[in-house]
Simulated scan of single mutants.
Amino acid sequence: MEEKLLAPLRDVPLPPSAVDLHRAVRDGRRRVRRRRIAATATAGLAVVAVLAAAPALVGRADRPTPVTPAIPPSPTAAPMPATAPAAFDPARQYAEFGWVPPVMTDRTVRTGTDQLALTASAPQTSPRPVKDAPAAELRIVSAGRDITLGIDRDFAVAAGRAGSAGLEPAEPVNGRTARWNTNAAVEPRSAALRWEYAPGAWAEVIVRHIPESAGDPRAVARRIALDLRYAVDWPIRLPVRFATPPAGLKPMAYLVSRMANDRWDVELSYGTGKRTKYGDWPLVVLMLPRKSTTGDDGVIGDPTSRIDGHPARRTSSLDGGASLQVYGVQGLYVEMTAHDKATLRKLGGNLDGLFRSATFHPEAHDWR
């Protein structure tokens, strides 16, 4: 949208500037991308930063304490693990939902080395987020880590750093210590239950906008917690495979959303364990099904060049990074960004080679 608004000025010479236009556009693209993800997974991690300040604004003195019935786990529930991983493999899924309310059919998984987030949500039919869509989110961290009390996109913190304000005693989850977290239960018909799923490691289930017909939100959260499956060790199936690991980098975080009507959204982050000075992972690859070859509210910028017959757009940043947007790739939109000069140098000075090394699988049933 920004591109279209500025179109009349496109040919007007600009004076030298210290403003990194590439980074400004990239940050705007990130916000647009998160709004799109939020529209399809209301409780997903893309919206948690917006809600992080909410606990301080919501009074709780007059909030009644719901009566939470004891709900036994279903026969499919896996036993609680004796130990937690020292670190997660971002390319694999450690835990999975067992039971969730049947209406929550959309799924989002966001992996990392010290945290995993799963979201189950009701399908969205509108391009704009539906504020009261029922959703459940699991947040789980590796050994020696804790979970922030608020709603944060990056929620893993060092053990003992989360604090205890707003925590209430809860019935143990499969024999393990548990607490109700009122800091995260800030939306209507919501509840947040955290427990020590393994010694020194915590998990939390947050449910939001639970319909009256489903019963008490705390009972729903507890039933989900009791029925989780640990150590499933599933590989994250993706719509792309690279011929070689990108620039010797390894997976650091994956975000994969799969929704109704064959909609999906994938963001892959690669690095060596250290973010850039701006907080980005060195290499980020974004893909979504999209046949249009122009920019709009979901994709910032119109193509200005081509690569292998596909409309494309190349931009660079003042810090030496660069982005490559490619439109109409077997019905996909593909965006690759090297967030620093060192990463771009490892890729041969541009992102064309990385794009050409990729094999795409646009149909979700063909993901590898």
Rank of each mutant, 00 (worst) to 15 (best):
P81N: 03
A82W: 09
A82S: 13
A84T: 01
P85K: 14
A87C: 06
F88R: 13
D89I: 06
D89S: 10
A91E: 09
A91L: 03
R92Y: 05
R92S: 09
R92P: 03
Q93P: 02
Y94T: 03
Y94C: 02
G98Y: 04
G98S: 04
W99L: 08
V100F: 05
P101S: 00
V103W: 05
V103P: 02
T105I: 08
D106M: 06
D106G: 13
R107C: 03
T108P: 02
T108L: 15
R110D: 00
T111F: 05
G112H: 03
T113Q: 10
L116I: 06
L116N: 03
L118Y: 12
S121F: 05
S121Q: 06
A122Q: 14
A122H: 09
P123Q: 07
P123L: 10
Q124L: 06
T125D: 09
S126D: 14
P127T: 03
P129T: 09
V130F: 02
D132C: 05
D132Y: 08
A133L: 12
A136W: 03
R139L: 05
V141G: 01
A143R: 15
G144C: 00
G144I: 00
G144T: 00
R145Y: 13
D146G: 10
I147C: 07
L149K: 12
L149M: 12
G150P: 04
I151F: 08
D152T: 12
D152I: 07
D152Y: 14
D152C: 10
D152F: 14
R153G: 14
F155K: 07
V157C: 10
A159M: 01
A162Y: 01
A162K: 09
G163P: 08
A165C: 08
A165E: 11
G166S: 08
E168P: 07
E171P: 07
N174L: 13
G175S: 02
G175Y: 06
R176D: 00
R176G: 01
T177P: 11
A178V: 04
W180I: 06
W180T: 01
W180G: 02
N181M: 07
